[in-house]
Write a protein that binds this DNA or RNA. Structure first.
Lengths: 263, 263
DNA sequence: GAGTGGTCTAGACCACCAC
DNA sequence: TGGTGGTCTAGACCACTCT
């Protein structure tokens, strides 16, 4: 068994470095050196306890460290496995450009199909309410103004990858398909442009952090996977913010790609 | 004591939800509701054990959960505290634009001083070697070509925030200040332009992940803080990549901000 | 049923911090 | 010196997966 190749070193209980960290070091090195490949099963806790002659909690502390680093995932009743990186979705900075809307599809759908994946959107909810302060700031409106709130979840081949909440000033959305669960071909950007709000530019603010428990559930995230939070503001040619989209994405599935001016 | 306001609820040992998660829920809610503020100390493990009538490991599991979410940090010998968010550095997409180099300062320095912080750069190392495959790909060169490698660490007010490694094709850097630890006013971009390589555009690829142990050490990261990895490619007016910069940043200190075209 | 990881107990000793 | 979190032991019972 390949697994046994890993059980070669031993630990120094007298060392300054805690035993569980030494054990984590061994396993991390085994992964880095390729003695354990993506998808390989690590030795079970029982084997590791036996090999290193330590208590179970010491092994579990070592495993937790590797999980927190995003190197392995534990599967209850099965074992601990070297995490295999899912295919990465590369988001180009021109992905919302008008020319990509021509086919009459929203950005996510057309991109996914282009990449050979099966896209799905679920948990669509539309309502009207007050915007959070952070959003109101970006819209340049008061936070007691009314906005149409569109939230939904995106999936690729059945795996949830992204949850998004869009805010559109109510006076722009009311009585248009933007207030419907299905906004029609090309998505809400197409609808906004039909109403004369030609889009001029987008601003994206990106942060990374660990997910909340709710996000962990909705995105089915493994431990050790952070999320991107991306707040995109769409402005029209009159420089009016016409939409703010607040997105949380599983960071192990995305690479964001931007072009910057040099002058 | 404010701390005791938190110790109000009790747990249901018969519930499906594990006890340690219930305890974490209580504490998380206390933080979210503002009953515990930034910098406040949580009740000690001993207090919590006593209050919930559980073993110490159960409390520690709850605490670990909150740490992994980035909500609290433990300080050995002192206590566990609600994490206070450090001031965020906002990186605008025009931060490498030529006009910002006029003062003769590198982007990091001039930006930091603008924000009223004290910048420092240490661990500067310059060498010549072969580029990693990922870098060679972006440079459009073979990975047995020679590049000048400049690595350094950036600090703000003494706190490390960013480690960066730049790669410049050796034929552009050799015999110029780009090969010196101190490349002179305006940094290496100014030197490249002086040599006739006027910069035309930058491409930034951004991912987020948990830090390696080495990155945790170099950036002095708390548990539950991910990193941005940002690979920036600078191309000149002849569309030749003249530098690739591989940066790892503490994600709790940064907000990246980009402008996207709408057509 | 056998093997896996998940939760929990009830202790122990240690290192660090503030007083 | 007393209180804090960090490490570690040696058990127990449980839930899940596979055969």
């Amino acid at each position: 068994m390949a697994v046994d190749d890993v059980l070669t070193s031993s630990v120094d209980p007298g060392s300054d470095r805690p035993v569980y960290k030494q054990i984590a070091d061994h396993l991390r090195t085994a992964i880095a050196r390729g003695r354990l490949h993506e998808g390989d099963q690590l030795p079970s806790e029982a084997r590791l306890m036996n090999h290193y002659s330590v208590a179970r909690m010491t092994i579990r502390n070592a495993m937790r460290l590797l999980q927190d680093e995003g190197l392995v995932t534990a599967e209850h009743g099965k074992g601990v496995y070297v995490r295999s990186r899912p295919p990465v979705r590369r988001l180009a900075s021109d992905r919302f450009a008008q020319r990509h809307r021509k086919e009459g599809k929203a950005a996510f759908i057309s991109e996914a199909e282009h990449a050979g994946a099966t896209p799905r959107v679920d948990m669509i909810e539309v309502s009207e309410s007050r915007p959070p302060g952070e959003i109101a700031d970006r819209m340049g409106i008061n936070d007691d103004a009314s906005v149409v709130v569109r939230s939904r979840r995106y999936l690729l081949d059945g795996k949830p990858v992204e949850i998004a909440v869009s805010y559109v000033p109510a006076d722009l959305a009311r009585g248009t398909p933007i207030s419907d669960p299905n906004p029609g071909p090309g998505g809400i950007y197409a609808r906004l442009e039909e109403q004369g709000h030609t889009l001029e530019r987008f601003t994206e603010d990106v942060i990374a952090r660990m997910p909340t428990p709710q996000e962990t559930r909705l995105l089915n995230l493994s431990p050790g996977v952070p999320v991107f939070r991306l707040i995109r503001t769409a402005s029209d040619t009159e420089n009016r913010p016409v939409e703010v989209c607040d997105t949380v994405m599983a960071a192990d599935v995305y690479q964001l790609s931007y072009e910057l001016p040099a002058r």
